[in-house]
């Protein structure tokens, strides 16, 4: 089972064949809407912005996919267990500050700096997880609070002016290419494949989906759901650290804006791909399509000369559209939703 259907939905042996068939149809349907959106977008971009299909723009899109994708995978994990992580932007910013402050531009200190940044990211993820599972704070509130907290820590620590530089040794992670493809994209692909395998092929993945679909029932069946939820927040924090390292390598400076951004792209990409905000449904493949769609969309908007305001409006509108479609359109027609509606479990 790779689609997030909870174990309580397991079909009897006699219906296994029919169920497998429906599973394939369901998978196809779940990818159809974002893929159709991507196709339409590519067509509109071709018509409205001549030169969109140049090698230069393609490189930009591939880079953007890598940058957004790493955080989108973390966000997907959190969304699958019914949470949301708004602290990703703050962890990205914190990572660049830790790297600059500790390494002071010295490549020899980079290793320790990365370890410190990783610990910080894991710490923020753990704090989010504990707030959610131990204190039952809604993830939306808990992660927003840590977002503000981390911003405050950065400001108090650096007084708004981080000293130190990003070591040049980190730049291949941001601007390097391997086989002509930007390194950030490779990083995303590796992360996505690992996450996809864990979610689709392991017991941990099954427990994760079950936790997102119905935490109480899953906990009653003996699964340590709290560990799983907290683990997803920690994973998201760690992937935000990776995104922070990519960002630091890309620009080579501490960008004060990074820690102040709520990073809407990770949520937008996952939701556009069809990951349910209510948890338990969605696959990494959908996130990959969502990330691609969003990266193309942002590149197209930039080519059109749209400002940051327009980009935010479009990101917000696309989240709304995707959620609306999930709630009333294509997702409702999937076999599992029909069964749920009819009370068949």
């Amino acid at each position: 089972m790779t689609t997030g259907a909870p174990p309580t939905e397991a079909a009897g042996p006699a219906r296994a064949g029919a169920s497998a068939g429906r599973d394939v149809v369901r998978r196809a349907l779940s990818l159809l809407a974002p893929l159709a959106g991507l196709a339409v977008l590519l067509l509109v971009a071709a018509v409205t912005t001549p030169g969109f299909y140049s090698a230069g723009v393609l490189q930009l899109v591939l880079f953007q996919i890598g940058l957004i994708g790493v955080t989108a995978v973390g966000q997907t994990l959190v969304l699958l267990v019914g949470g949301i992580d708004l602290s990703i932007g703050a962890v990205i910013g914190l990572t660049t500050v830790v790297i600059a402050e500790h390494s002071r531009g010295d490549g020899e200190r980079l290793g320790v700096a990365i370890l410190l940044a990783t610990a910080a990211g894991a710490g923020v993820g753990l704090l989010n997880g504990l707030l959610v599972v131990r204190r039952q704070v809604p993830a939306f509130v808990a992660t927003f609070a840590t977002f503000v907290l981390v911003q405050g820590v950065i400001t108090a620590w650096t007084r708004g002016a981080p000293s130190g530089n990003i070591p040049g040794e980190l730049s291949p992670l941001g601007i390097g290419r391997w086989l002509g493809i930007p390194v950030p994209l490779w990083a995303f692909l590796v992360v996505a494949v690992v996450a996809g395998v864990v979610l689709g092929r392991t017991g941990l993945g099954r427990r994760l989906y079950a936790t997102g679909a119905n935490e109480r029932a899953t906990a009653l069946s003996g699964v340590r759901t709290r560990w799983i939820i907290a683990g997803c927040f920690v994973a998201s924090g760690l992937l935000a650290v990776l995104a922070g390292l990519i960002n630091a390598g890309y620009i080579g400076y501490v960008d004060a804006r990074l820690s102040r951004s709520l990073d809407p792209n990770s949520v937008a990409a996952a939701v556009i791909g069809g990951i349910a905000l209510t948890g338990g449904r969605g696959r990494i493949g959908q996130t990959v399509v969502g990330v691609t769609l969003l990266a193309v969309l942002l590149a197209w908007l930039r080519q059109l000369g749209a400002g940051a305001g327009a980009q935010l409006v479009v990101s917000g509108a696309v989240i709304l559209l995707a959620v609306w479609l999930q709630g009333s359109g294509w997702a409702a027609r999937s076999p599992r939703r029909i069964k749920q509606r009819d009370g068949v479990r």
């Binding site: 949301i84 708004l86 939306f140 927003f144 804006r257 102040r260 951004s261 709520l262 809407p264 949520v267 939701v271 349910a276 905000l277 209510t278 940051a308 935010l312 409006v313 990101s315 917000g316 989240i319 709304l320 959620v323 609306w324 999930q326 709630g327 009333s328």
Partner: peptide, 22 residues
């Protein structure tokens, strides 16, 4: 039933507000 839409509206509003007050 459709709790997701209000959640998304709230999320979008927070994102836009946060960026707008920068």
């Amino acid at each position: 039933r459709p709790l997701r839409l209000p959640l998304a509206i709230g999320l979008t509003a927070v994102l836009v507000t946060a960026c707008g007050t920068e």
